[in-house]
Design a protein around this nucleic acid. Structure first.
Lengths: 125, 125
DNA sequence: CGCTCACTTAACCAAATCGTTAAATATTCA
DNA sequence: TGAATATTTAACGATTTGGTTAAGTGAGCG
């Protein structure tokens, strides 16, 4: 039961948030650094309120933090839920892995044993 | 060679399929081996038609193959879309990794270069 | 044959999703 | 002060989702 990673992450909203291509694009953009709402909206053809709703979905999933800075709202990605989703998928990784992958997986398991923190990589607040 | 399984995996339906806890439970169960519809329905308190719909969602996402065997329908997990979802998340893995993880990641990248399988990993681009 | 078992399909409903436009809010600047 | 900018909230509508019950299909069996 070491694997009690990030107690507060509900995978449902996380996967749901990632189900929409615009929201995935927003995550991709934020992976490159913080951005304002306007900057996040710019690549897409939908209205600003639509973007605002997408941001709310990401925020509710814990993927996003928004901090007002003057009249701009700066958005920052929180990767912890991504890590949780990754962790869930990792449980079944053996299903699609070939023998070469197993080597890397073994090394990864070793790494986990070494670091031994259950709440871990999700930066605690 | 090649593109058996998932010439193109659309991640939208895959993430959407994984967004529901019953469907995640079904994936988990199928990871332990094939099962009939009835066996998949048994752990859950919803009606059989509800399970049938969940299975359809998983099937449409490419996660599931159903093969009638007599009067039972045998369900088999197809992990390729899981691999694709994993691959997408992996692109941002650096965001939550610490230095120990980077080692494993480096090894994984190396592995990818060594094995020429664009068939099993949706490495777009 | 006729019944039962294993499922699916149909029809329906409530709630959520995803988009819109119009209005409200808040901050900066001339 | 008042206009412009950045973003949210409100209200609406079409579509999808997730559940239900009831009816349909098809294989196995006494």
């Amino acid at each position: 039961m070491v694997n009690r990673a990030k107690a507060s992450v509900d995978l449902g909203p996380v996967f749901a948030a990632l189900a929409h291509p615009i929201r995935r694009a927003i995550v991709e953009q934020l992976a490159g650094g913080d951005a304002t709402v306007g900057e996040l909206a710019e690549p897409h053809k939908v209205s600003l309120p639509a973007i605002s709703k997408h941001l709310r979905v990401l925020e509710d999933a814990g993927l996003l933090q928004v901090e007002p800075e003057g009249r701009v709202h700066r958005c920052q990605l929180d990767a912890a839920p991504l890590s949780a989703a990754f962790g869930w998928l990792t449980r079944y990784r053996v299903l699609w892995e070939d023998r070469f992958d197993r080597l890397a997986r073994h090394l990864e398991e070793t790494r986990k044993t070494e670091t031994r923190e259950e709440t871990t990589h999700a930066r605690k607040k």
